[in-house]
């Protein structure tokens, strides 16, 4: 874990770009008093633009809790979550969906796509929900489908796609709103090692090429070498 502490004076030339995701002493406990269960011990993590960070650990280690907090889906018991310069922990519950819609991209493991939307519609759904311009959305969707090699699948429904193709669509969808931060939850879960690597390669390529910050939760050790940084999480404790 890179220990980013409050720096009194930033050094201009060597200072790395400001982190897009900054978790500061974030913890999560359930229940109180005697029966307290700690899902996540105070954790601190910064992710910068163009950086793909893998959070790896066995099941039940707190990966999902970690990702939920980083994705503004779950409020931490203590600590601060700053995404794209905004303190998410200070925002009200009601504003979070709109915040996620604008600033975050999710790539989830299964039930990831809407069964009754075509590949192209999966993508245009995001700007539609955000109330964006339909023509711009269509342009951007076509562009993404082209870049990610999904052009020929644009009119197909998820039911007709392979697992790898579905994850590619999910990555394309996560990029639709041009988010600062991409959160991936076991994107390789139901894929064989070749397809799994392809998906993570694509994710890494988009993150690097577009200067996004990304956190990928995984217990798939075969893809860790594609990530810029790997942090381990064991029993709710994050280790750099």
């Amino acid at each position: 874990m890179t220990a980013i502490l409050e720096m009194p004076r930033p050094v201009p030339s060597t200072e790395p770009a400001a982190p897009i995701l900054s978790l500061q002493h974030v913890s999560k406990t359930y229940g109180d008093g005697e029966g307290t269960i700690t899902a996540l011990h105070p954790a601190t993590l910064d992710v910068r633009p163009g950086e793909l960070v893998a959070v790896s650990g066995p099941s039940g280690s707190g990966k999902s809790t970690f990702l939920s907090i980083a994705g503004a889906l779950l409020r931490p018991t203590s600590g601060r979550v700053v995404i794209a310069g905004q303190d998410v922990t200070a925002q009200s519950e009601a504003t979070l969906p709109a915040f996620r819609l604008r600033h975050l991209g999710f790539v989830l493991q299964s039930s990831n796509l809407i069964p009754y939307l075509t590949v192209r519609e999966q993508l245009t759904l995001v700007p539609h929900l955000a109330g964006g311009n339909a023509r711009e959305a269509a342009q951007r969707a076509d562009e993404l489908l082209r870049t990610l090699g999904l052009e020929s699948r644009a009119r197909q429904y998820p039911g007709g796609l392979s697992g790898g193709q579905r994850q590619r669509v999910a990555i394309a969808r996560a990029l639709m709103n041009d988010p600062a931060l991409i959160l991936a939850d076991e994107p390789t879960a139901s894929l064989d090692s070749v397809r799994g690597r392809e998906v993570v390669q694509l994710l890494a390529q988009e993150v690097h090429g577009r200067g996004k910050a990304a956190v990928m939760v995984t217990h798939d050790e075969r893809v860790l070498d594609l990530c810029d940084r790997v942090v381990q999480i064991v029993d709710g404790r994050l280790k750099g």
């Binding site: 994705g71 969906p97 999710f106 989830l108 759904l125 929900l129």
Partner: peptide
């Protein structure tokens, strides 16, 4: 329910 969960995670509001 899982689909609604996904849509909400992406950022769809309950109202939508």
């Amino acid at each position: 329910t899982p689909q609604f969960g996904l849509l909400k995670a992406i950022g769809a509001s309950t109202r939508t």
